[in-house]
């Protein structure tokens, strides 16, 4: 919420219509500010190094916003600015302060606006903002209107899912923030035990695997684990996978392919073997680039397709001779015998 304010850009506290009317400016000792209360925290950024120089040379251009609580003050806007001031050894700051009884919905909108109107929120921040708004809004209609004005999603199919995100285990949230996993994968992982989800996020990060492949790997791992009564963590920790993961001599893409093949073979041993046998026999047939032999889908049907690529009569005639040869090849008999 504080990235722009601290850079000397105008803060957005004024964007909330009545907020200023009930706030007053005052000097507050930093010891009186409860930095642990994250009720109004939207930002996921924790580091403050980028703020230190500016605050030290120019001071706090935009005072943080606080709200009174039973033991002092909670932060509404300016989590990072206050953390930076602490790091600089300041004893007190000037802040705008709301009374303890201030309208929580109004304060929530202020906290969200301070972030959302300055930069696009990431998924975790959006999730926090939606939850904060939902928890403080008097009714659904006001929630919707406020969300809309703050640029938050309001679609009934998205809001519940988005709200889940900030309740997920932290490694999953970190996976989202690093761009390793998307929302639907995060929610998928959220259904698993936190330790398993953490192991999987680590696995995906290590493999640098794209979102589509993540889904496939997750399915393979989950189903193998279920069938074999082992945990996903155990599976990942097993030698065959670790041998691939720790083999730094091979390219990451090859590593990913090897992992996928290994898991697929383990999940579908008979199908994988049939596919491998089929490929071996097709290679023995030496079809060349102009002939393709396509097996029945999943080897369930009995009809094979042969596709020929040719440019002229001579080409076709040559292919005809090749087909004659293929017809007499024992590998074709093996393929058709199944």
């Amino acid at each position: 919420m504080d990235s722009k304010s601290s850079d000397g850009q105008p803060g957005s506290e004024n964007s909330s219509p009545d907020s200023d009317s009930v706030a007053h400016a005052d000097t507050v000792a930093l010891t009186e500010i409860n930095a642990k209360d994250a009720t109004f925290r939207i930002t996921t950024r924790r580091q403050v190094e980028d703020l230190l120089d500016t605050i030290q040379s120019l001071g706090l251009l935009h005072p943080p916003v606080l709200i009174e609580d039973s033991s002092g003050y909670s932060i509404v806007c300016g989590f990072r600015r206050i953390a930076a001031c602490r790091q600089l050894g300041w004893k007190s700051i000037t802040a705008r302060i709301h009374k303890a009884g201030a309208d929580r919905f109004e304060i929530a909108r202020l906290a969200i606006a301070d972030n959302a109107l300055q930069r696009p929120l990431n998924l975790v921040e959006t999730s926090r903002a939606l939850n904060l708004l939902a928890d403080t809004s008097p009714d659904q209609q006001q929630f919707k209107e406020a969300a809309l004005s703050l640029g938050l999603p309001i679609s009934p199919s998205v809001v519940p899912k988005a709200r889940e995100i900030c309740r997920l285990a932290l490694p999953i949230q970190d996976g989202i923030l690093s761009g390793t996993i998307n929302m639907s994968m995060a929610l998928e992982l959220g259904k698993l035990d936190a330790a398993v989800a953490t192991a999987l996020v680590g696995f995906f990060i290590q493999l640098k695997v794209g979102l589509n492949k993540q889904r496939e790997l997750l399915l393979l791992l989950t189903e193998i684990a279920k069938r074999e009564d082992v945990s996903i963590q155990q599976l990942i920790a097993e030698k065959p996978l670790q041998n691939i993961l720790q083999n730094t001599a091979i390219d990451r893409a090859v590593q990913r392919q090897n992992i996928r093949s290994y898991l697929r073979q383990r999940r579908y041993p008979a199908i994988s073997k049939a596919e491998a046998d089929y490929q071996k026999r097709v290679r023995q047939l030496n079809l060349g680039k102009q002939i393709q032999l396509v097996p029945p889908k999943n080897f369930e049907g009995t009809t094979y397709a042969l596709t020929l690529h040719f440019e002229n009569r001579q080409d076709l005639s040559n292919l005809n001779k090749r087909i004659e040869k293929i017809l007499g090849h024992p590998a074709l008999g093996e393929i058709l015998k199944r």
Binding site: K226, R227, A270, I271, A274, N298, F299, E300, G301
Partner: peptide, 22 residues
């Protein structure tokens, strides 16, 4: 239940079936 984790393929009728050789 583990029955859905066997080696199934989707048949031409859209149903999941064990891989034919099995």
């Amino acid at each position: 239940s583990k029955i859905v984790y066997a080696e199934f393929i989707k048949g031409p009728d859209g149903k999941m079936r064990y891989f034919k050789p099995l």
